[in-house]
């Protein structure tokens, strides 16, 4: 796929908690239609980088530009869908139906002082149909399996009608079959609906099979390449505490 329009550009991003450097000079661009996987060990700064890109945290140095605009001037947030790391953001007892969660995706787009319209309801329904969850619309989100919940969160991100969707470790805690279905869904979003995807994961094996580009982050941007080049230049050193450790031989910037 030929990518022309730059959706997101992160330039020379630094971030530290006191003495502890989390990110050091990360420069990364995402093109329209791209499917980018950001991989790296736990604590390597992947989620911090994502939060800086989304404006949830401010970098200590560096700039973020969205669709060519500096993040401070950028207003068109409904172009961006976000599926947060479920474990840390989701209250299992929250009384919301699948439909109510999907409809929340419309809330940012609608703007202050506007009630939801039939268009919002249609978009929420369409989003749930895309992820195959419309039949379960009246079920409580807390009654679903982990894989089903993630589909609903994708639907929430889709309902906003974004151009790009960020997913932070979306397959943590779901079984292999649900994982495969989930990646098939992401492929569909990227190929058929033309959504740009940025996926954070430590599941390197799966990510290399799915994405167009891989960025390895371990405080710095250690590599940026296609999955084929990535596999050529790295070797797996086995599984350590549930995490695939990778040694990168050549830097592919």
């Amino acid at each position: 796929m030929i990518h022309t329009e730059t959706v997101l550009e992160a330039r020379d991003i630094h971030f530290s908690y006191g003495e502890n450097t989390v990110l050091k000079g990360v420069t990364l661009a995402v093109q329209k239609g791209d499917y980018l996987g950001i991989v790296g060990p736990n604590g390597a700064g992947k989620t911090t980088l994502l939060k800086i890109m989304l404006g949830l945290m401010a970098p200590s140095q560096g700039t973020i530009a969205w669709f060519g605009n500096d993040i401070h001037q950028f207003k068109d947030w409904p172009k961006i869908g976000y599926v947060p790391q479920k474990a840390t953001n989701f209250d299992g007892h929250f009384p919301a139906t699948v439909y109510e969660v999907a409809l929340m995706g419309r809330y940012g787009r609608r703007g202050l002082f506007h009630l939801t319209t039939s268009d919002d309801k249609n978009q929420a329904q369409k989003a749930l149909e895309h992820v195959g969850m419309w039949e379960l619309k009246d079920r409580l989100i807390s009654d679903l399996s982990g894989g089903q919940q993630q589909r609903v969160f994708i639907a929430r991100a889709l309902a906003i009608e974004p151009e790009i969707i960020f997913l932070d470790e979306p397959t943590v805690g779901i079984d292999q079959q649900a994982k495969n279905d989930f990646y098939a869904l992401l492929r569909k979003l990227n190929h058929e609906l033309g959504k740009t995807l940025v996926l954070i994961s430590h599941d390197i094996e799966m990510v290399t099979r799915e994405v167009d580009h891989i960025a390895c982050v371990d405080r710095e941007l250690v590599c940026y390449s296609t999955p084929e080049e990535f596999l050529k230049n790295t070797r797996f050193t086995g599984v350590h505490e549930g995490e695939v450790q990778v040694i990168v031989h050549g830097h592919q910037h």
Binding site: D91, A96, L115
Partner: peptide
């Protein structure tokens, strides 16, 4: 709608503007 979204998921609500 803003109160609902923030209550359910403050980060996602912030990202959506």
């Amino acid at each position: 709608k803003e109160l609902v979204y923030i209550t359910f998921d403050e980060e996602a609500a912030r990202v959506s503007g």
